[in-house]
């Protein structure tokens, strides 16, 4: 079973040289720490920055330079800054190659819910609805089951949707899964030491698995 960094590490292996990538808040942010050496990637922050650098050194924080999670960050050589309309222009026109974001639920036809729990949590969707509606390639990083032990991979989402039929790949602490075009989750890889049966029990949506499912390698 993977920890959060393990999930981030596995997702980082999906990033290809030359990609422009948008990382959501939470586990997706950690992916930046595991981008393989020798791969040139530009991180987009939808508040208006391409080429997001690491956190600043202590004492060098700049209140005018933050990411979409409102964290102080830095720029890199080649960075550019722009306004919010232009930022979503590059998202809508599919200039961003890969979007990685968290989710509360994903359905077996690729619907995602991650912005609202009616009557309980009202935070808003931020840029998530724009990203999932336009992105070519979206990977969801999330825990396989919620705190109550219920599966987050479902036949249908029960929470208000963020987007429909848009998720193609999910990485959890237990597995890597693809969403099949015709519906259902296809088990691609198991986390080290996790059995197919265990994953099946943690997945309420339809799960397809071959007889032998490889264990994921993280290095």
């Amino acid at each position: 079973m993977l920890d959060k960094d393990g999930i981030a590490k596995r997702i980082a292996r999906e990033i290809k040289d030359g990609f422009y990538v948008n990382l959501g808040i939470g586990i997706p942010t950690l992916v930046a720490n595991y981008i393989p050496e020798g791969i040139n990637v530009v991180l987009q922050s939808e508040n208006g920055l391409l080429g997001m650098g690491p956190f600043p050194f202590e004492g060098e924080e700049d209140a005018d330079l933050i990411n979409a999670g409102k964290q102080t960050i830095t720029t890199l050589p080649g960075s550019s800054i722009f306004d919010s309309a232009l930022s979503f222009g590059m998202i809508r026109s599919q200039k961003i190659d890969l979007t990685i974001l968290g989710a509360m639920e994903v359905s077996e036809n690729g619907d995602i819910a991650n912005w609202k729990i009616p009557g309980k949590m009202v935070k808003g969707m931020g840029g998530a609805m724009d990203l999932v509606a336009s992105a070519k390639n979206i990977i969801v990083a999330m825990q396989h089951v919620n705190k109550a032990g219920e599966s987050k991979l479902l036949p249908n989402c029960t929470l208000p949707l963020t987007g429909v039929k848009c998720i193609k790949k999910i990485v959890t602490e237990l597995a890597v899964l693809d969403v099949l075009p015709g519906g259902g989750f296809k088990l691609i890889e198991r986390a080290p030491g996790v059995s197919v049966d265990y994953i099946r029990q943690a997945t309420t949506g339809k799960l397809f698995a071959d007889d032998a499912v490889p264990e994921m390698s993280l290095n």
Partner: peptide
């Protein structure tokens, strides 16, 4: 009263 709308929609409605 609150109207929550996608961030890109917010920016584009201003634009």
């Amino acid at each position: 009263e609150v109207e929550l709308i996608p961030q890109g929609t917010l920016a584009s409605r201003c634009m």
